[in-house]
Computed example of a mutant assay.
Amino acid sequence: MIKYPFLEKDTTIGVTAPSSGVPSELHGLLNSAFKSMEKKGFKIISRETAWTQDKAKSAPAKKRAEEFNKMMLNGEIQLIIPPWGGELLIETLEYIDFENIQNKWVLGYSDISVLLLAITLKTGVATAHGTNLVDLRGEYSDDTTAMWQSVLSTKKGESILQYSSKKYQKEWQNDNPTPYIFNLTEQTYWKSTENEKVKVQGRLLGGCIDTIRHLVGTPYGDVQNFKKNYIEGDSIIWYLENCELTTTDLRRTLVQMKLAGWFENCTGIMFGRSPANTPVENYTVEDVYKEFSKELQIPILYDIDCGHVPPQITFINGAYAEVESNNGQGTVLQTFK
């Protein structure tokens, strides 16, 4: 059985950086995010790693893990949101106290998805893949991003429906801020390897493929054990997003995951919009999707609202989902069962 945390109103958020912290010249972003969250009624407890950054990490691995472990055991904190992602979260995993993971939400994406996926696979506690903290610093959030709060406030046994965004951000325009942070200029259009309406059901698992691929073959990436212990034979829908990989590196990674059994009893894969997917020779990402869809005999959706090209839907690792896509629009119905 999956264990689902529940976000109560006006609760306390813990801010720690198990990957990258915020360097001093960008502390304004963090302070601004705190003010926005406090206006919404949340209390904030932040620790040292959120404010430091050196050599591609907020602090040495043990310190990052200890800070996270303490926040996990702090009864006042109900939700942990790192400031943002980074590069080297994987260094912390051997020091994370998985035996004492509490039933509380951890929310984030990018490198944070390594921790999210590891927690759900090892403990059966649901985790939330969605916005990071600094992207909540606006006067308000766009409709897609804003759903994080409703999703995390869904009770066990209940369902929550999210829709594809109307528009997405092609590039950051930091000199042209909007009240909701993002510059949403491009028409969202979910695509598919099928020529018809797509409907898939299963348990959600996923994250940033650049980083979660390094869990393959480790104790933190035991998908078979998760299936046996927590989801009683339910199928899986993978949601993945590519931050920096070329098409050939993406292909190698997907084949590795397949060989490791990650895609056994999988009903579909969703790929987020990507700033990468750089073609190698004339090998495009569409080629990758079509080949893989044919090999696994499952539909692949792509350019969905997930990852480094915002906004993004809040996906819950472990939740039962019904995903539909038709004519460029999509819905994700998640049930906490």
Score class of each variant (00 low, 15 high):
L29M: 10
E139M: 09
R213Q: 13
D135F: 11
L296D: 00
K104V: 05
K57E: 04
I13G: 11
Y109T: 15
D111N: 12
K166A: 13
Y189W: 00
Q102T: 09
L93Q: 07
K9S: 09
A321T: 07
E99P: 14
D234I: 10
A126T: 14
T144I: 07
F336E: 10
L29N: 03
I44G: 03
I119M: 11
K166F: 12
K70I: 13
L7R: 01
V125H: 14
N74M: 01
F226K: 09
E25C: 08
I212S: 07
S192E: 00
R273L: 03
A59L: 06
Y189T: 01
M1G: 15
K63Q: 15
K70G: 06
C266W: 10
I304T: 07
A56Y: 04
W51G: 05
G85H: 06
D111A: 08
I44P: 05
L115G: 09
P83K: 12
H214K: 09
N326K: 14
N183M: 03
T123A: 06
A17P: 02
N103M: 03
I101Y: 02
D54Y: 10
I181L: 13
T247P: 12
T145W: 02
S325R: 01
A321L: 10
F336N: 12
L133K: 01
L115F: 08
Q187K: 08
R273N: 04
N100I: 06
N265H: 12
S150Y: 10
S235R: 10
L301P: 00
Q312C: 03
S165L: 06
C306M: 13
L107V: 10
N174V: 12
T154S: 05
P275E: 03
N265A: 09
K166R: 12
T253R: 08
M72V: 12
E25N: 13
S293L: 10
T145D: 09
I2S: 14
E171M: 12
H27E: 13
A59C: 05
S141F: 01
K337A: 08
S153E: 08
P179W: 00
N176Q: 14
